[in-house]
Amino acid sequence: MQSTADILKPFAGEMRHLTSALNMIASDMIRDRKLAEKLDSDPDYFRKNYPVTEEELQAMRDRNMIRLYQLGLHPFLLVRFAGMMGILEYWQALGAPGRGGGWPRNM
């Protein structure tokens, strides 16, 4: 069974949030509610204004929570981003134990 440290490795261990541009984008989305709409309508805006990789941008456009977590979107911002996208039960997408308890299902 994986330890908590193993599961938290991208976040608490490797601290990928420190170097991923995803976090600047999500931080700005908290302050500008129209910015999130550009993900679908104007993805070039993000290419021009942030040092974001195609892989990062695609994960955000796909609302792929597992990938975003692995790429280093900070968990707080991931929750905020999921909420902005209308994904309330974000932990289900992450394979988290949620209400059922137990260990993560699909990481």
Binding site: T4, I7, L8, F11, I66, Y69, H74, P75, F76, L77, L78, V79, Y90, W91, L94, G95, A96, P97, G98, R99, G100, G101, W103, P104, M107
Partner: peptide, 12 residues
């Protein structure tokens, strides 16, 4: 608590 992670729902 472990908000925003695959451990959300686990409590130590």
């Amino acid at each position: 608590h472990y908000p925003g992670t695959p451990l959300y729902g686990h409590v130590d």
